[in-house]
Write a protein that binds this DNA or RNA. Sequence first.
DNA 1: ACAATGAAACTACAGATGTAGTCACTGACG
DNA 2: CGTCAGTGACTACATCTGTAGTTTCATTGT
Lengths: 122, 122
Amino acid sequence: MTERISDAEHAVMEVLWKRAPLTATEVADQVVQQKDWSLQTVKTLLSRLAAKAVVGTERDGRRFLYSPLVERDDYLTGVSRNFVDRLFGGKVMPLVAHLAEADELSADDIREIEELLRELKK
Amino acid sequence: MTERISDAEHAVMEVLWKRAPLTATEVADQVVQQKDWSLQTVKTLLSRLAAKAVVGTERDGRRFLYSPLVERDDYLTGVSRNFVDRLFGGKVMPLVAHLAEADELSADDIREIEELLRELKK
DNA sequence: ACAATGAAACTACAGATGTAGTCACTGACG
DNA sequence: CGTCAGTGACTACATCTGTAGTTTCATTGT
């Protein structure tokens, strides 16, 4: 049921998740610092997101204010589960194991994660 | 530099990663148990993968034998890094934290990961 | 030698995606 | 009051993806 968000759209969402509501121009100003896109491109992405009801629009005089309609957390949960399911058979352990073996985990990372897990077991 | 592999193509790759080389028909036989695709669809996917040099072809008389040219591990590393970079700022901890908060981690999962980390620190 | 079979090659086609351009309208400015 | 700049709406268009169908060629059994 969760609407699909493409990579390009995701960059726009990140801006809105950081602060909202924003006008299209404000969003574009932020996005352009990351991606080399034109204002029109950002507007198109906002329209598509609005069409999918992933962002909401609120009229403000001549322009619109855009706000996310889905929580970043919910989105992350969805894509994370999907990712782990597709690539690691739904188990997180193999993912962590893989990252570790690929040297994507520093000693500090490991310490941080251990502490986090200790907290969780409270 | 790592060639993009689409979702559908990935399903085909999983079969080849399990066993290779295989003929197109053999691959399709496996894939069809998971996805409800026609033989032609699987052949198309194999062709696209071959065009991208993600699988290699070896003539065997009248037909071809297909084998993966990229290691599953390398592929996983690439997509995992990309995933963690895009969604969690490149840090694994927030990912684990997120999964934990979203109740995607069972107590068993946590124990397993802890043990894994302990091993790693050796 | 010929017809049926099976496999690769080529073609198809709609929907999603990335990346804009252009049009029309409206309020602000001179 | 006429012009311009900002804004949303609509249009564009090449690729990529998912999902096949059709054509062609070689092989194999009769």
